[in-house]
């Protein structure tokens, strides 16, 4: 038990250091951006009609006069105290905005994550099991096709088919246009999330299925499966007793590793479907030079990704006897 705690502590420490690095990298990138916050957010024409004092006030607001190092340290100082500042674009606390947006995105991402994980695993396992036969070829063909398709293109295609031609699903946003918050039903929200979630799942499936297929083939070609067959174990016993057990570890790695891809995909999918989620907020923060919001989103998404890897590491310890027993002996 002490060993596990030590292990978890070390991982957490590493995670904090990585978060620090990620926030710094995001800051530096934004700093190096050629976009001028005043030009993009206020506009050339409006700026032209302003007095010098007004412009100076605005420059101070967008942080143009503060040296970068000081700006980052200021942000870091308050972030460590839990205060991520106010968004420059929305003029509201960053955490509040992230909270709202995450609420919209999270279940989009979670449903896509689960769907692509389960479907990807099943398809990959089936393809590996029927290696070289028609189910394998079909699944592999589908995966190769999908993984060579850009997410935005797929999103537009789905939008075209289901929202424009068939007209059975809404074309964008997360709630009906013009409806007031009280009258929005759960069914409305669901209907609006289907297409973005579908886009994310469909692209996620391909990657997971192809990797799972490789793992399945590795397992089936392994010496221990050969010996299990030599002992007379049936096909179902090989699949259920040896196959699933040995696929569990790589599947967990894949599944939790895919969090980053889902988040990355959601940025694009939300943009296409005008879905007001975290991904869309990230795009507006980036284009609008909203440093506090962008850093906040970066830290939160990075924490989600690291958190996923952390959970995967902990699950290893539960599943893999080599880790579990060694820990118990200590």
């Amino acid at each position: 038990m002490r060993h596990r705690l030590q292990f978890a502590g070390k991982k957490l420490l590493r995670m904090i250091l990585l978060l620090l690095g990620v926030s710094l990298a995001a800051f530096l990138l934004m700093n190096a951006s050629p976009l001028d916050p005043l030009q993009t957010n206020i506009g050339q024409a409006a700026l032209g009609s302003m007095s010098q004092e007004q412009i100076e006030v605005l420059e101070a607001y967008w942080g143009k006069n503060t040296p970068p190092a000081e700006r980052y340290l200021q942000w870091l100082g308050s972030a460590l105290r839990g205060d991520f500042g106010d968004s420059l674009l929305y003029r509201r606390p960053v955490l509040q905005i992230i909270g709202e947006r995450l609420g919209g995105s999270l279940w989009l991402m979670v449903s896509a994550w689960i769907l692509s994980g389960v479907l990807g695993f099943l398809l990959g396992a089936a393809a590996g099991w029927t290696r070289g036969k028609w189910p394998d070829r079909l699944i592999r063909g589908y995966c190769l096709l999908i993984s060579s398709t850009p997410v935005f293109w797929l999103a537009i295609l789905l939008l075209l088919v289901f929202a424009v031609w068939l007209g059975i699903l809404p074309i964008g946003l997360s709630v009906p246009i013009g409806a007031d918050a009280a009258s929005v039903t759960l069914a409305d929200r669901l209907a609006h999330a289907i297409l973005p979630a579908l886009t994310l799942s469909v692209t996620g499936v391909a990657n997971i299925a192809l990797h799972t297929r490789e793992k399945m083939i590795d397992v089936l070609e392994s010496d221990y499966v050969l010996f299990a067959r030599a002992r007379g174990e049936s096909k179902s016993s090989i699949l259920l007793r040896h196959g699933l057990r040995n696929m569990a570890l790589p599947a967990i790695t894949l599944q939790f590793g895919s969090i980053s891809e889902i988040i990355g995909g959601s940025v694009i999918a939300e943009q296409v479907f005008s879905y007001p989620g975290l991904g869309q907020a990230a795009v507006s923060a980036g284009l609008g030079s909203d440093m506090p919001l962008l850093l906040g989103i970066t830290v939160v998404t990075a924490a989600l990704v690291f958190g996923g890897n952390f959970i995967a590491d902990l699950l290893y310890g539960v599943i893999d006897p080599r880790i579990r027993r060694r820990a118990a002996h200590k």
């Binding site: 392994s222 010496d223 221990y224 040896h242 057990r245 040995n246 893999d320 080599r322």
Partner: peptide, 8 residues
């Protein structure tokens, strides 16, 4: 290596 590493 002919024994399943994850099974007793």
């Amino acid at each position: 290596n002919y024994l399943d590493p994850l099974m007793t």
